[in-house]
């Protein structure tokens, strides 16, 4: 079991209202990702759930039980820290065993659990080493191992992959997703990387300045962002925003069109643009264009579409995939 409910939760540091008020429902077994730019309050929110920070107002319920005043260890949660926070003076074995030792479990039970966790995480050969003798990815696994053995009702991850290089990040992403499928335990995951959010989450919570901008599945957020902020944050490369006459013709203040929803042609189209930069990724090419009367536009096209610096290109937005926003930046529904 591992459902988490936030009711009216707020957090104030001195004068600064980091989180004005948040209501959120996290269901048992869900993989929920908090995503947002740095300083949006996502880590604070996670730490409030963990109990590492006291709430300024509101309630936190885990499995329906009010834990607002409970100590971190009493909440039945496990956390994986950004720096991994491994105990440098303990072997891998003792690191993983530490929470079990604190829970005063039998030595035989502890040994078995540690051995099992090490097998799952491919750490069996490293059990006697110190954290300083491990690679970044291995340390990450030890941190996860320390979380797993407690059999928590939910895992909390605080930007766990940000200290790894790009290749390892991809691998660990898969490993964590795989772990979620095996354990079927609730996971709450904080990141500023929208790719991590899109690829791992069942449910994404987009945060901005301590407020929830939108909650939904990755595809929900991609297909129908509720406002400009979400539209700009989710999706890579970023959505193009077009103001002025074109937007007005669509009865909107701002029109949003994703780079992948622009049809490109070398002969004719609605807009005319000049290629400033062409990024050839192989299968795809990203074109950064200077479009007459519109400005900077990013378009995504097939890798076969030969375009180079200075070329003239014609673009036509796919009207069906157009996003429209009003004066306040909220999305207009058709």
């Amino acid at each position: 079991m591992g459902s988490i409910t936030l009711k009216n939760v707020s957090k104030v540091f001195g004068e600064a209202k980091v989180i004005p008020s948040i209501d959120l429902e996290i269901n048992d077994g869900e993989f929920v990702v908090f995503v947002g730019p740095s300083g949006c309050g996502k880590s604070t929110l996670l730490r409030l759930i963990a109990g590492l920070e006291d709430v300024s107002g509101g309630q936190i319920l885990i499995d329906g039980k009010d834990v607002t005043q409970s100590a971190p260890a009493e909440r039945g949660l496990a956390m994986v820290f950004q720096s991994y926070a491994l105990y440098p003076h303990m072997s891998v074995r003792n690191n993983i065993a530490f929470p079990l030792k604190m829970a005063k479990l039998d030595k035989a039970v502890i040994d078995k659990k540690v051995t099992d966790a090490a097998r799952v995480l491919n750490l069996t050969d490293y059990l006697e080493r110190r954290p300083s003798q491990l690679s970044g990815g291995q340390r990450q696994r030890v941190a996860i191992g320390r979380a797993i053995v407690r059999e928590p009702s939910a895992f909390l991850f605080d930007e766990p992959l940000s200290n790894l290089d790009a290749a390892l990040r991809g691998t660990m992403r898969l490993e964590i997703s795989d772990l979620h499928h095996q354990l079927k335990t609730t996971m709450v995951y904080v990141t500023h990387d929208q790719v991590e959010a899109m690829t791992m989450a069942d449910k994404i919570v987009v945060l901005n300045r301590g407020n929830i901008e939108q909650v939904g599945s990755p595809l929900d957020l991609y297909k129908s962002p509720r406002n400009l902020f979400v539209a700009g944050f989710i999706g890579s490369p970023k959505m193009n925003f077009v103001d002025g006459a074109y937007a007005q013709s669509k009865n909107a203040r701002t029109a949003g069109i994703r780079p992948e929803h622009l049809n490109l042609s070398k002969d004719s189209g609605l807009w005319t643009g000049t290629v400033k930069v062409a990024e050839h990724l192989g299968a795809d090419t990203f074109l950064h264009l200077d479009v007459d009367g519109i400005g900077q536009i990013t378009a995504r096209c097939d890798g076969e579409f030969g375009a180079h610096y200075g070329d003239k290109v014609f673009l036509t937005p796919d009207e069906a995939k157009l996003h429209r926003f009003d004066d306040k930046g909220s999305a207009l529904r058709a």
Partner: peptide, 27 residues
């Protein structure tokens, strides 16, 4: 001594005394 280590110990269920004996003192 990084603060996250102390937080990790608290998450792992260590009380103040255990925190001092098992985590802080060795470090």
């Amino acid at each position: 001594i990084p603060g996250e280590i102390l937080e990790a110990a608290r998450m792992d269920g260590a009380g103040l005394w255990q925190e001092i004996v098992y985590v802080l003192t060795p470090m």
